[in-house]
């Protein structure tokens, strides 16, 4: 019920501070290229106890930033998707293979994949992120070198794979063999870290819709990742973002690709179950 009280409070603030910019999420709707409808607000998944409605970070951005996502031509993140498209067809490694040799057209073979990751991969016996799967392909199927976990090459490839699932609902499994890792991720989400003693939840569950300095706090959803950020003019991966957040609590962060961040990604992704895959999104 905390959310409803907050909304009521923000409503009062918005009225009294007429002309000031409200930190509230707005009610705009997102349709990409005039055809891909993105679910940016929906009822929270059952496992969430303290939030009634989940929202894409898109709602917390200004109209100008939001507009970048309406058309792929205007979305700078799509430049990196194009680069990854070239890489998709490029032969690399000792086995003389490209991604396309096994997976053919990315639009077909990868459709829906982003929506269910991270997931428990039976053959590997572990929960894997898309990055882990890509590097597994590179080292085992291609005989190529693994990419740096949160480097540009892999983030661009994740963006390509994400782009062909846009509009499909996020649907990561949290039960069965994934449950233990999901519980670990949940534990991390609610654990305060660093000199500022902040958990993910302190900002993104208790305080979303409020201002943090001059910025609007979102729910910290990751359905829009990889995200093109205006601030660094490139695509940013989920783990790079986690690292930035944890660092801002003035804690030693986990490494991108570490089991802790994989668990956290699984948990945070599951908080967006029902939202559409939106990446590559555009954020500030």
């Amino acid at each position: 019920m905390k959310f409803k009280a907050l909304t009521a409070l923000s409503g009062v603030l918005a009225i009294t501070a007429a002309g000031a910019v409200s930190a509230d999420p707005d009610d705009d709707t997102l349709v990409i290229n005039g055809e891909i409808e993105i679910v940016t607000k929906t009822a929270a998944p059952e496992h969430m106890e303290y939030i009634d409605e989940v929202m894409s970070g898109w709602h917390f951005r200004s109209d100008e930033t939001q507009a970048f996502e309406l058309d792929d031509f205007d979305n700078p993140g799509m430049l990196f998707v194009e680069q990854a498209m070239d890489v998709w067809d490029t032969v690399e490694g000792e086995k003389g293979k490209s991604c396309a040799d096994c997976h053919e057209a990315v639009e077909d073979s990868m459709k829906g994949v982003r929506a269910v990751y991270p997931k428990y991969v039976e053959s590997a016996g572990e929960v894997r992120t898309l990055e882990m799967q890509i590097n597994d392909c590179r080292t085992n199927a291609m005989g190529a070198e693994a990419w740096k976990y949160d480097g540009d090459d892999i983030t661009n490839m994740v963006a390509l794979i994400s782009s062909v699932s846009r509009g499909m609902p996020i649907n990561v499994a949290i039960d069965g063999p994934a449950e233990m890792m999901w519980e670990q991720g949940k534990e991390l989400y609610y654990t305060r870290t660093g000199q500022l003693e902040l958990s993910c939840a302190n900002c993104h569950e208790d305080s979303y819709g409020m201002m943090i300095r001059a910025d609007h706090l979102s729910q910290g959803q990751i359905n829009g990742f990889p995200a093109y950020r205006l601030k660094n003019a490139k695509l940013n991966s989920v783990h790079a973002r986690f690292k930035g957040c944890v660092r801002d609590t003035r804690a030693e962060t986990f490494a991108p690709g570490s089991p802790e961040f994989v668990a956290l990604e699984l948990y945070v992704a599951s908080r967006g179950n029902g939202l559409s895959v939106e990446g590559p999104s555009v954020r500030n």
Binding site: M211, I212, R213, A214, D215, H216, L217, R229, K231, N236, R241, G244, C245, D248, N284
Partner: peptide
């Protein structure tokens, strides 16, 4: 021009 919240 606003300064951000968290550097991220």
């Amino acid at each position: 021009v606003t300064i951000g919240g968290c550097g991220g």
